[in-house]
Amino acid sequence: MASQNKRIAKELGEVTTSPPAGITVTLPNDSDLHKWHVVLEGPENTVYAGAKFGLIVSLPVEYPFKAPTVTFATRIYHPNVTNDSIGSICLGPLKAENWKPSTKLAGVLEAVRALLAEPMPDDPLEARIADEYRSDRKEFDKNARVYVQRYAKGAVKFDALAAAAEADAKKGAGAGAGSGSSAGGGAP
């Protein structure tokens, strides 16, 4: 256990002293090394430029022998991130069968940022968005920018995001497609 913390502390030290471009890592709770808050700046010259995304990194107790989980706390319009308040990411190195204990979190976070610059529509979590990305790039760019404007502007407030996600989960799937109904009036 001690040696695992040593590894995490070392990684955390490296990430905070010489952070990779556009990535800021903080610990929400100083006594818990297993939960990281990450602010990811949208890469320049992409539809996400100027955006600030909140990411939550959870390290399992078995880390680094088991892969960490990385999720978007901020909503994002992207083929490889689920379009909901959970924000799961589809990223090769994070899959159990591909994870290697020598993989470093800094590398993982850089890979996430690279995914923003170059989505992988052939391996999508959101098939519809992936289709749009491939066939109607203009519409995709527009939607992605709308999301950035709506969700990813200004400082990232992790507490507010967590509260919103919880509220969403409570509400359930009721907010799906609204069901219209006949508004039949009388004939004249």
Binding site: S179, G180, S181, S182, A183, G184
Partner: peptide, 17 residues
């Protein structure tokens, strides 16, 4: 594109949404 089930009334539909 909201999904609508017609539950009676005439053919004059007004989408609630």
């Amino acid at each position: 594109n909201s999904t609508i089930e017609k539950n009676g009334g005439c053919n004059h539909m007004t989408c609630r949404k």
